[in-house]
Amino acid sequence: MEVLNPHTLEEALQAKAEHPDAVPIQGGTDVMVELNFDRRRPEVLLNLNEVGELRGWSRENGTLRLGSGLTYTEAMEAPLAELLPALAEASRTVGSPQIRNRGTIGGNLGTASPAGDALPPLLVEGAEVELASTRGVRRVALHEFLVGPKRNAAEPDELIAAVRVAPSGGQQTFMKVGPRNAMVIAVCSLAVVADRERGELRASFGSSGPVAGLVSCPLDEAASLPELVVEAASPIDDVRGTAAYRRHALGVLARRALERCLA
């Protein structure tokens, strides 16, 4: 086993091109668990901690560019938390302070778990994923990037460089069901935004299908949203809950989310 330690994005992309099987590691909150339990033993680990270009966030005109190394703790801080409030709420439900200090938005995308907490808030805001390689940079809509449980559309030589999102400015919220407030993998989760500019309500649910799902309806048909969500979800029975419970809970969350977003 070998650890590569690039110090610039260019070096990182070069390393990924030379070692397409290398497993990128940023916060380590997913990758380290697999290593610690010997579930995975990659030949090469690509440590992204030293790549400054992946850190922080910036604003270009109306669009935010969140570096893939942006931590949940950073996503909870103003002014970013005011621009993407549902993402901030979701970030606050992730793990514990220790996990939020290390875990990153890019890692959530890379893992592409159906339960990824950052995914629903980014989906309702129409986020795009910026994928970089030595061949160049391309953007993929987040809903196309998530192709299956723990599968994403990144090519082997690509790294997740950033997430781009133009905040709608609409009232939004994120809710998550679990046995306690901390250290919870979502039994199910829901993000909703009331986008008044487009006259549209968008909802995205997590842990209720192979990928986080996205539905929308006109603002003046708000009452139909809970049913839309429940019908679009395809949950399964697993250790965290039953499909029936998840469906029921999603309907409850959607009604509560509407109260918050249309208030």
Partner: peptide
């Protein structure tokens, strides 16, 4: 200076 779980940091990342 940041609170983390040492089990989730790769030793090589602390270099």
């Amino acid at each position: 200076g940041t609170l983390v779980c040492a089990c989730l940091v790769l030793a090589a990342q602390a270099d």
